[in-house]
Design a protein around this nucleic acid. Structure first.
Lengths: 125, 125
DNA sequence: ACATTATTGCGAATAAGTTGCAATAATACA
DNA sequence: TGTATTATTGCAACTTATTCGCAATAATGT
């Protein structure tokens, strides 16, 4: 299952790298200058997630958003769970540099955390 | 827009009251002894949410789950944001009595928080 | 240059949730 | 108790997000 370099992969990755926000499939499709098939975009994104290049956020709208958390300098910070903020006004999702802290009852094992705050961001208020 | 009492409404509400977990539409449909239409269940649930009887959680699977947070004694606690735990093994979601604490950058207004931890619960591990 | 196989595009399928509309039934009020 | 009002329901169709099968294409190693 070796990965290959393709224009599609490059394009999606660059878009995510340059974007300050988490993007959905259709946002990615719209912002790309080259036409890439819907299913392909999903497959590329799912591969990125599997390879830990990108993390997936599921928002209250039930949609998936994908982000490379650039701001986090080191790898540990990337993998650490953090809050996400979804602005209802500009309909974007961004990674906040706010770690998610919690405790769970005895015997519970946490594998992942999906935390999204919803409201209005600074730009829109 | 006055609310009316109907068998459907009673049945769904009782199910949620007796359940210790958050339920999805199809879980509710399966657990009900009377047959209720899919769309109707959604409409009942959406009404409950609007009336603040029930809160809606969107899990990583993109699906909506609905819960009455019985454990919380007082109303304030019900309305307060708390973590939810989704067990991958028994495919349930439950409200944890763990409040969500966070801070947001200046100028950000938070209206809602949707926080779901995923893993394996005590019963399943 | 060639074989291997990862990747892509297309179309169809799946699944969750919503909506329009006509029929039904809960409530208020005479 | 009877009737009008309108909230609620069931059905079918629709929308939207995501996945999947399959055949065609193209990256990579030798």
């Amino acid at each position: 299952m070796n990965r290959r370099n393709t224009p599609t992969k490059e394009a999606v990755l660059n878009l995510l790298l340059n974007s300050k926000k988490a993007l959905s499939q259709d946002a990615i499709e719209n912002q790309l200058d080259i036409k890439i098939n819907r299913a392909t975009i999903y497959r590329v994104l799912n591969r990125f997630c599997k390879d830990d290049l990108v993390h997936r956020i599921v928002a209250e709208d039930g949609k998936q958003y994908f982000a490379i958390c650039k701001k986090c300098e080191n790898q540990a910070a990337v993998l650490q769970h953090h809050f996400h903020f979804r602005c209802l006004s500009c309909d974007t999702i961004e990674c906040l540099q706010v770690p998610v802290t919690y405790s769970v009852p005895n015997g519970y094992r946490v594998q992942n955390a999906n935390c999204v705050l919803t409201g209005v961001c600074n730009d829109c208020s």
